[in-house]
Design a protein around this nucleic acid. Sequence first.
DNA 1: TAAATTGCCTAACGATCGTTAGCTATAAGA
DNA 2: TCTTATAGCTAACGATCGTTAGGCAATTTA
Lengths: 198, 198
Amino acid sequence: MTIANIGVLTPRKQEILDAAKKLFSSKGYVAASMRDLAKALHIKPASLYSHYPSKDEMLWEIAIRCAKEFHEYVLPLAKEEASVVERLDRMLRAHLHMIIKNQDASAIFFDEWKHLEEPRKSEFGKQRDIYEQAFIDVINEGKAEGIFRDINARFTMFTLLSAINWVHKWYRPEGKMSLQEIEEEFSKILIGGLRVGR
Amino acid sequence: MTIANIGVLTPRKQEILDAAKKLFSSKGYVAASMRDLAKALHIKPASLYSHYPSKDEMLWEIAIRCAKEFHEYVLPLAKEEASVVERLDRMLRAHLHMIIKNQDASAIFFDEWKHLEEPRKSEFGKQRDIYEQAFIDVINEGKAEGIFRDINARFTMFTLLSAINWVHKWYRPEGKMSLQEIEEEFSKILIGGLRVGR
DNA sequence: TAAATTGCCTAACGATCGTTAGCTATAAGA
DNA sequence: TCTTATAGCTAACGATCGTTAGGCAATTTA
């Protein structure tokens, strides 16, 4: 199963998946029971099994679709015609956008996927690797051009994404900072810190 | 219960707490059962209740002690006699040290505390606030002195700590980067990005 | 119109969970 | 020597978990 050939779901299947996504991201996969999910959908727990054969299968369907969203929204930016700095900046902003606009997906993409059972967990890991590698590649480009300091690209990728990922743990839309402000600050601190020549 | 008056434990109580800390941090509090813990200690599950009245009580004892470790190791650095940049740098390095040297404590301090039941959860939150505020204060000092850019101090604290906190999810002692290398890179990227005048 | 699919139901199984009741043995302190 | 604290045990309770078996009604497809 690759991201490319993820099929379309029955409307009802989609509804159930949406409810599960919301529940898993708010309570955590382990703490959220099938009975909780059934209650949210106003059906009986056993009815869920008419649509999905197991809880793990549901988590998988959710996780792989979250991965797809991140991939499709962020990765094309790596190959646009623009400078390295500009492309990395765009990628980080897009990544931030995804996190803020789609907080449920973020929680799954960053935290809950670890509860997948094998071999799905490994399969998901491969998709994460692809995503992270795209950032590493751009950072390495910047190093080769002498624009970024001589730095471990993988380490840098972790640092950048980690700083941004945490946002979904504290950001609330009604809070004091607007999305645009957050974008600008990240761009200054993170990209700023990367550049040589200070 | 404040951090100051945390008492000393019976040797056996300490052993059990250590095993629980290890288990909770590796499997997660929810997934780690009292039966798992008993097995790790080679005793029967019911015997645990001779020492602690509940699982939540154990998590609390672990969490508040982890908080204490972070507080005592990092916070005094905020008031040393040194420049703002130097003090923030030392605090971040100390924070990183704690995470790498004490990965179990990190997992509890960052992730597992959220499973505490009220009112302990709120009480723990207060301790986290104190810890975070110390970083905010130093950043504000730097702003007042014109050394750091005009930035939301709370946001910056989150960014800095988030980037570092993630380390405990990927760092392995046998990996390629040494602690010193990690320290230097963080210092360059994070502190570097904060400073004005580029 | 007959057949197949979709969606949900009741009832329950077996497993696992945190926890309790009540007991015994050992060691240290009064 | 008596008391108290420490440290463990067996057995089991009630709750909750993911899941299954088997059936019923409505809708869609052939």
